[in-house]
Amino acid sequence: MPTAARLRSLLRGKATRLCLALLLLVELGVARPDWLWRLVPRSGAGIVDVLETRVIARAEAPQIIVMGSSRVRDALSPRDLERALRLPTGAVLNLGLTSGTPFDAVTLYRRNRAKLRTARLLLVGLEDWYLNGAMAPTERDRRFADLSERWSDWDGELRLSLLLGYVWRTYDARDVIRETLQALARRRVRDVPLAPDGRLLWRADEPQTGPVDVDVLAELDGFFRDDRPGLGRRAQLARLIALAQADGLEVRLLRVPWRDAYLDARHTRHPAADARWRAWIDSLTPPPLGAERASAVGLLPTDFVDYGHLAGRGATLFASLIADQLRTSGWPAR
């Protein structure tokens, strides 16, 4: 009997059929329905629903939308920016989220386009690790990416893993299932609180200042482990910009400063990644808002809680810097 026939007869075995039936049950009952992905608010996938139901849905007339990573989330308090730009309360919406990428931004924009297209300005934060093609997909990539995005935005092993997840959603959902089981085991699903200014509040407290010295290497080396060039996040960013511009929004890119120590360490420990980042930033027209080096804009090491998340005082300074830069570049124009 040829091997293919043997494989077929093997799959006809009762035990194999039961196994496949159970796996199919998990696939159809757990991994494919959307409820699983939304169940744990603090999960990478569930946070999107928190943003949508508790932040975006409640926004009345946003004029400035801020999107990006947790560094963007922490760096720009909507109230600070509204004050600095003399905008009414609620005019700025910060949708930054942990490990946020351009894919999250374009996904949020697409899903909430009716509301977000009413804004006038879209600020999108840039991160150096967006250019690392070895950075693993997030839960949101696995939840929302369609087949063409999985194919075009990724390469090598990660592309294969995303294609596998597209066919077999249980594979995509494995982290979410694990998080859900852990939450059920604890019998407690932790919610994500919101700051009074409408941002997600990830930390228990919002310190005004941080420590003088921190170890920046753990994060840095994590961002650039197995570093290799990747263009997927840039392609996602281009899609976001095209979509927002088609809706009449002005789009400006944004850099949130890092501690000087982080930049120095990146330059020495990951020179290729550093050079790639600089080349990208230099190629952008107009240049991104914000700044890269903390000391260049008067930020102190104590204005950060870690390698690059701004504490309260630093965030206030940064908001006024962005407001100045926006005014200098002629915003608001209408």
Partner: peptide, 10 residues
């Protein structure tokens, strides 16, 4: 038994 195997595999 086949049913134990099936559950074990899954």
């Amino acid at each position: 038994p086949w049913w134990v195997r099936g559950v074990t595999y899954a």
